[in-house]
Simulated scan of single mutants.
Amino acid sequence: MKAKKPAQSATRLAVRYLSRRDHAEKELQQKLLARGYEQADVDEAVALCQDYNWLDDARFAERLLGNGIAKGWGLLRIRQEMEHKGVHEAIVCQLFEHDEFDWYEHAREVALKKFGETPMETEKEKARRLRFMQSRGFDFEQIKYALDVEDEY
């Protein structure tokens, strides 16, 4: 049984996807291939979108960074999201190379928003807070700073 050919062109669908939100190149390719388009058609659609600057991995990565910060994510979580979306490692490294954002203060703001000024009175509560901050993508130095913890882990 032969697969049904998609009703619209790969370029047209790519433009529809990009009109809703930015995509990474790899993410857009995967979506088009999943809809049944041939690799050559997908490559042509992606190239056209890049020529018109509708598809730009660097711009997409910058937006992911801003959205991640707004969601209270740490650097590790944002990098993981970029990798998951298919942003090339070179673009990610370039984005964070001159990063002047204060991740320590950001971690402190996230912790304060979540836990307020209440002190950690038990080891169980301390572990809960550490797990939360870790799940948000902060490293141990940032977590220690944010929670004002002196212990070594």
Rank of each mutant, 00 (worst) to 15 (best):
F96L: 13
H88C: 05
R108N: 04
A111T: 05
A40W: 07
A70F: 03
G137F: 11
V15C: 03
W54C: 01
V149C: 15
C93M: 11
E38Q: 12
E97F: 08
W73V: 01
S135G: 15
Q30K: 11
A45M: 03
Q30N: 12
C49A: 12
C49S: 05
E27Y: 01
R77L: 09
R59P: 02
H98K: 12
W54P: 02
K4P: 00
R21V: 06
R59H: 11
K2D: 12
A90M: 11
A3N: 06
A58S: 14
Q94A: 15
A14C: 00
I91Y: 07
R79E: 08
H23N: 06
E44C: 02
S135E: 15
H84K: 12
G68C: 03
R77G: 01
E97D: 11
Q8R: 05
R136I: 01
R16S: 10
Q142K: 09
A111C: 07
H84Y: 13
K31L: 14
D43V: 02
K2V: 11
L13V: 11
R128P: 00
E38L: 13
L130V: 14
E83K: 11
Q8H: 04
K31C: 10
E25M: 01
R129M: 13
D99S: 05
Q39I: 10
A45H: 02
E100W: 03
G137A: 09
A7M: 04
H23Q: 07
E25T: 15
D139N: 15
Y153N: 13
E123K: 06
K144I: 10
K124P: 03
F101H: 12
G116S: 10
Q8D: 04
A45T: 01
G116L: 10
A127K: 12
E27V: 04
L13Y: 03
I78E: 02
G86Q: 06
L147N: 09
D51E: 05
E123C: 04
H98S: 13
E152H: 14
F140T: 08
I91N: 08
E105H: 07
A3I: 06
E109M: 08
K114C: 10
D139Y: 14
A7E: 13
A70D: 08
F96T: 01
E44I: 00
E125K: 08
E83S: 13
C93I: 07
K85N: 08
A7H: 00
